[in-house]
């Protein structure tokens, strides 16, 4: 029976999702446009860039370092069987620049900054702070949502660039001093196979899309949350889960479009 319920449940969920999606899209548009509103403040934007970016920097760097080292190890053991360890630099760099950098940055960002953003906006709603703003004739989209959304769009590509670089460094430190791959070959191979526009910039473009999507989902979940303590908790969980899935799904689509 439980399985038979699945079909109508799925139908209901889809039917509920479509108007929600419409509302979320309108929310995104209103917030993005609010950047020209009188109440949009650069100071608020900087504050959010600080909160999202500077405060996630250490996390990103540690994660990137380990990711790069693991890539170095695994790549080495895969390539050494074919005597192709000279391609290790290429492998590490391309994996990071095209996929792992943007995706891992976005996932970590969703967990670190996205969840905090949802909790912040939903508790602002629960404690009537958004209403209070509205009553003071300050547009909450311009003052609260827009700076956070734009901060996400700005911060994630920057974090991604740093992630890529630190990851490659981690890969280098494992490959060359530890596993004994020739350092010159490592860099030379990497340089001859990585293109600036095709690999580095497209990777960063991916990160930009992810930044937009993650902050959008996080802000929307916060804005649409039930204004209760339980609602805040639920929204935070949903924000991370939805944002992570959205990143992975979008990554597939972007990869199909950008790298073919």
């Amino acid at each position: 029976m439980a399985f038979l319920d699945f079909v109508p449940n799925l139908g209901r969920r889809v039917l509920l999702t479509i108007p929600n999606l419409g509302a979320a899209a309108r929310f995104l548009l209103r917030s993005l446009v609010a950047v020209i509103n009188r109440h949009f403040s650069i100071q608020q934007l900087l504050k959010q860039v600080y909160g999202f970016g500077v405060r996630s920097l250490l996390l990103m760097m540690v994660a990137a370092f380990f990711t790069g080292m693991v890539l170095g190890f695994q790549g080495y053991y895969a390539l050494v069987r074919f005597g192709a360890t000279s391609a290790l630099g290429t492998l590490v760099a391309l994996s990071l620049l095209r996929e792992l950098g943007p995706v891992l940055t976005a996932l970590l960002f969703a967990g670190r900054a996205g969840s905090a953003l949802t909790a912040e906006i939903s508790s602002m709603k629960a404690t009537e702070q958004l209403n209070a703003m509205e009553m003071m004739a300050v547009n909450p989209f311009a003052w609260v949502v827009a700076p956070r959304l734009w901060a996400g769009i700005i911060v994630v590509p920057i974090l991604c660039a740093i992630f890529d670089l630190v990851g490659i460094l981690g890969g280098y430190l494992i490959s060359v001093p530890v596993l004994g791959v020739d350092g010159g070959t490592f860099w030379a191979q990497m340089q001859s196979n990585v293109t600036f526009s095709g690999d580095i910039l497209t990777g960063l473009f991916k990160a930009l899309c992810f930044g937009l999507v993650v902050t959008w989902i996080a802000a929307w979940q916060g804005y649409a949350a039930q204004p209760t303590a339980e609602g805040v908790g639920n929204a935070t969980t949903r924000s991370v889960v939805t944002a992570s899935l959205a990143v992975l799904g979008l990554d597939f689509i972007l990869t199909a479009f950008l790298f073919t």
Partner: peptide, 10 residues
């Protein structure tokens, strides 16, 4: 407007 929960910006 004075709100029930004060609604101060935290």
């Amino acid at each position: 407007m004075l709100f029930q929960h004060s609604a101060l910006f935290t």
